[in-house]
Design a protein around this nucleic acid. Sequence first.
DNA 1: GCAAAGAATGAAAACGTTTACATAAGTTGG
DNA 2: CCAACTTATGTAAACGTTTTCATTCTTTGC
Lengths: 360, 360
Amino acid sequence: MVRLMPGKRAKQPKLKKKAGVFDVAREAGVSVATVSRAFNLPDIVSEDVRRRVLATAQNLGYAANPAAKALRSRKTHIVGAAIPTLDYAIFAKMINHFQDSFAQHGYMTIVATTGFEHANVFEKVKTLVDRGAEALLLVGAIEDPALVSYLKRPHIPVVTTYSYLPDEIVPCIGFDNYAATESAMEYLADLGHRNFAMIAGSPKGSDRQRARIAAYKDFVGSRNLHGAANIIIRNFTIRDGTEAIRAILDKYPETTAVVCNTDVMAFGALSESRRLGIRVPQDISIVGFDDAEYAAQLEPPLTTIAVPAEEMGRLAAEMLHSSLSNGEPPRFVRLDSHLIVRKSACPPRALKQLRLAAAV
Amino acid sequence: MVRLMPGKRAKQPKLKKKAGVFDVAREAGVSVATVSRAFNLPDIVSEDVRRRVLATAQNLGYAANPAAKALRSRKTHIVGAAIPTLDYAIFAKMINHFQDSFAQHGYMTIVATTGFEHANVFEKVKTLVDRGAEALLLVGAIEDPALVSYLKRPHIPVVTTYSYLPDEIVPCIGFDNYAATESAMEYLADLGHRNFAMIAGSPKGSDRQRARIAAYKDFVGSRNLHGAANIIIRNFTIRDGTEAIRAILDKYPETTAVVCNTDVMAFGALSESRRLGIRVPQDISIVGFDDAEYAAQLEPPLTTIAVPAEEMGRLAAEMLHSSLSNGEPPRFVRLDSHLIVRKSACPPRALKQLRLAAAV
DNA sequence: GCAAAGAATGAAAACGTTTACATAAGTTGG
DNA sequence: CCAACTTATGTAAACGTTTTCATTCTTTGC
């Protein structure tokens, strides 16, 4: 006759309801308070007890419930980032480093993509803080009035990136987009160019585009150059760049220098020029913006403006983190962008002919 | 004489401790349960009460504390994604769509980047679930034995992407990397190529690279072609592609067709070939893998394998979400990849000369 | 040698929700 | 008209931690 030991099943590895502090406490022969302390304030618990607690915790596969932890301690260890898209390398790179830096402090990053619609960002930001984000990374100027007034009351640490905006309502860590474009223009003007055109993204909802466009217009205007109005607005794809350069060649054939507000666009402009039999830089000079990975590998290598994407992400994370731990508020920091001279720009053809003539 | 109304400050917009259910309940003249229901089970509460509750909530700026909500309801509304890096467009694009799809169901995505070290991923995965992730997206085969055994016990819904692996321990949604490379090889062989080389990423910890390398070796071997061992291992940057093609030209000068396991590498190979005066495809044929945005814009336009990055992200999100809501487990789904024929490959020079001779 | 201070721990309250259970009112069917 | 449902709401327990406060035991200073 078989006895089935009805009263007690030896072990029950199945239904174990996920060990909690209480289980660990019982098993280790201490109180729940001590368990909690062993994890969170290890210094104030005696060495042997701490070891015992940690060991039994390990043994039981204990992992603190993050919700309970967050509820009681009022710390979610979550930070949020609201960016236009991850599908654009320059944002992905920034977020990559932001996320990575914060992870080293035990924080997780949740990212919300807003598209390029400004209407979305307030909503996404609210979602982010409603979800428990303790700090926020934004990109660009805060435009939505609703968001402005939302951020005016002090909630949580916020920084905005990509633009240096000393008057912004939250600290920013970025570079001077106006000056960046200006430096490119200066370079081209010094080369002898007088007829300009620009390939830009939509200024709507992007202070960066607006700043670059303004720098372009101001520069062309103040130096009595040509083409202040020759601005083609397109989206941020290579194909848009190809269309834009066609438009320029078609509508403003006198153009000798085109400044692109994005390397993606410059890429399109470059490859389409080649297809059309226009030589760069001999026939037309092109400069980009971003210094994407491929910029140096294009034909010709692209003269462009290097942007501190990694640094923005990392610095934003560091600043927000110290704000979270020390209470030290984020600062306004102005990073450098600088023109990287490669081969896609040279003196305009007319000038070269002049020089040649002079040499004879 | 001025009266200061000492007893009562008219309003106190400062110290309001962030309204909770209780405040809303009191203000709306209902119980906390009703408030909760008005938000979460709107159908079972009478219309007028619901409206009143929602209105006062809005009024008080009430937003449910996510931690408390998660603690009691056991739903964090957070999902996790562990990927090598965001700095690589193909992953960023997938995550972008994953995140976006899940956001439409009210879920936030937290992403953890593992680098290309396999040791990290188990740790990151644990962090993710410890942080409350209700579902998980992974990429590639699960290699770490610790992670394998961790995932063997049913925890939470998990899918892995990028590879179709019918025998994987968790459902996967990806394409057949072996077949993809095979199709490219077939195409090249049909063009008449007999001398091959491959530019690959490290097979270590990447089943995708291993599958593509295996396909290459098998194909070359089974058809008695040359170059089964001519595989250059590099990282995933353009510069690595440039170095790799130099190595191939140097060590295996007889090569007429090189298959790159990444468009980034192919980009490098293409541009370096041009710099070296090697014509593509006349002197050497090159095919890529990914169909990156720029593939069609290279010179020559790159023949490459299109990969369903967006679809993987979106589908993974949809499947995990229905798993979360219906309990319906994720399926194994095999997506298509296909060769996109452009201009970077043609019959090898020798063959063309032969044809020419025959024509005479 | 004793008061005061410090160190290590425990008991129980608190965090802000959701939800199981209870209750009251309204509806139906015979 | 009453039993049996249904519908709308309220009461209080529960979720799993951290933290306050109290307690005990050990040091320290004079």
